[in-house]
Computed example of a mutant assay.
Amino acid sequence: MSVFDKAKDKAEQAIGAAKEKLGEKTDNQDLANSGRADQTKGEVKEAGHDLRDRAEGGVQDLKDKFNK
């Protein structure tokens, strides 16, 4: 995963956490729920990027094995 993708995913999670806390402090359930959703989206994206990177690494390993 590129550093930029990882930073975007982490930023989305951090913004979501801040929105959730602000929503809880101000008794705004819509904002708190939106924050939780943002955190989940960031986590899912991060997991997807990690999975893609592992798959690309596996493909490269196979290519290297057959090119020897």
Rank of each mutant, 00 (worst) to 15 (best):
M1N: 08
K45E: 15
D30T: 10
K45G: 04
E12R: 15
G35H: 02
K19I: 04
D53M: 08
G23K: 00
A14L: 13
F66Q: 07
V59Y: 04
K63H: 08
A47Y: 01
M1L: 14
R52S: 10
A55P: 02
K8L: 13
K19W: 09
Q39V: 07
N33M: 07
Q39S: 10
G48T: 06
N67Q: 15
A18C: 04
T40F: 07
R36V: 07
E43H: 03
K45H: 14
G16M: 02
E24R: 14
D5G: 04
V3C: 06
A7P: 01
E46R: 12
A55K: 11
K25E: 15
A55N: 06
K65P: 02
N28G: 01
A47N: 09
D38I: 00
I15H: 00
D5C: 08
K63W: 05
K10I: 13
D9I: 04
G16K: 01
E12V: 05
L22Q: 06
A7Q: 11
A37Q: 11
D30V: 10
F66S: 08
A47S: 07
D5H: 05
D50H: 06
G23H: 02
V3H: 11
N67M: 08
G48H: 05
S2A: 06
L62W: 01
V44A: 07
D27Y: 04
K25G: 09
K25V: 12
A11Y: 05
S34D: 13
H49Y: 07
G57D: 12
V44W: 02
S2C: 04
D9P: 01
G35S: 01
A37T: 14
K19D: 09
K63F: 07
T40S: 09
K10L: 15
K21A: 15
H49S: 08
K19Q: 13
F66M: 09
A55G: 05
